[in-house]
Amino acid sequence: MAKATPATAALEKAGIAFTLRTYDYDPNAAKIGLQAAQALGIAPERVLKTLMARAGNAVVCVLAPSDKEVSLKRLASAAGAKDAAMLPPAEAERVTGYHVGGISPLGQKKKSRAYIERTALAHPTVLVNGGRRGLQIELSPGDLVRAIGAKAADLC
């Protein structure tokens, strides 16, 4: 079994059931979420990528299917901001406490508002990064939303 991360610790503390999935992380993959989905043999729309962005002056966490692109205009609208932009990798790492390729929406160093693509809620389970490269957490989307206080929105 993979060793604990702040993400798995947060779920255990909240009493939320989850399953860990490991895979061989490819640091050269063009799209990390798609590589994870392929390596695990899971439909890419069920593997959610974790993106860190700025909506107005606020840092936000964004969860979207790995096979979709987030619309910054839609994200800004969902967050009630005039604009939105992705955080540079170094800032995302500093804010979350995780390395790029291993950023989890769970157990981040600084809690930020979270948004999840509405279509992700239709699946019985989804996968999110477990807090390190090559580790995914599978759980119900409802439990994920409750764990991070995410707001569902049309982001893609």
Results as ranks from 00 to 15, higher is better:
I42H: 04
A43M: 07
A43I: 11
A43S: 07
A43D: 14
E45R: 11
R46V: 06
R46F: 09
R46P: 01
R46N: 10
V47A: 03
V47G: 05
V47H: 01
V47Q: 07
L48V: 03
L48Q: 08
L48Y: 09
L48S: 01
L48I: 09
L48P: 01
K49F: 00
K49W: 02
T50P: 00
L51S: 04
L51P: 00
L51K: 02
L51Y: 09
L51N: 03
L51A: 00
M52G: 06
M52F: 13
A53G: 01
A53H: 00
R54A: 08
R54T: 15
R54W: 12
R54H: 06
R54C: 06
G56F: 02
G56N: 07
G56C: 05
G56W: 11
N57G: 13
N57D: 14
N57A: 15
A58Q: 15
A58G: 03
V59M: 05
V59P: 06
V60C: 12
V60E: 03
V60D: 00
V60G: 11
V60A: 02
C61L: 08
C61R: 12
V62W: 02
V62F: 04
V62S: 01
L63Y: 10
L63E: 00
L63S: 02
L63I: 06
L63A: 06
A64Q: 07
A64G: 05
A64F: 02
A64C: 15
A64S: 14
P65I: 02
P65Y: 04
P65R: 00
S66P: 03
D67T: 02
D67E: 13
D67K: 10
D67V: 03
K68S: 14
K68E: 12
E69Y: 10
E69Q: 15
E69T: 14
E69C: 08
E69L: 14
E69F: 11
E69D: 15
V70C: 08
V70H: 05
V70L: 08
V70F: 07
S71H: 11
S71A: 06
S71D: 10
L72M: 14
L72A: 13
K73L: 10
K73Y: 00
K73E: 15
K73V: 14
R74C: 13
R74V: 06
R74S: 14
R74M: 15
R74A: 15
L75N: 01
L75S: 10
L75A: 09
A76H: 05
A76V: 02
A76D: 10
A76N: 07
A76T: 02
A76E: 04
S77D: 14
S77N: 08
S77Y: 13
S77H: 10
A78H: 06
A78D: 07
A79V: 11
A79M: 10
A79G: 13
A79L: 08
G80E: 09
G80F: 11
G80C: 04
G80V: 13
A81E: 03
A81R: 05
A81N: 11
A81S: 13
A81C: 12
K82V: 12
K82F: 01
K82T: 12
K82H: 12
K82Q: 12
D83A: 15
A84F: 10
A84G: 07
A84Q: 05
A84K: 04
A84T: 00
A84W: 03
A85R: 14
M86G: 08
M86E: 00
M86N: 04
P88C: 05
P88V: 15
P89W: 11
P89M: 09
P89Y: 13
A90Q: 12
A90V: 14
A90G: 05
A90H: 12
E91T: 03
A92T: 02
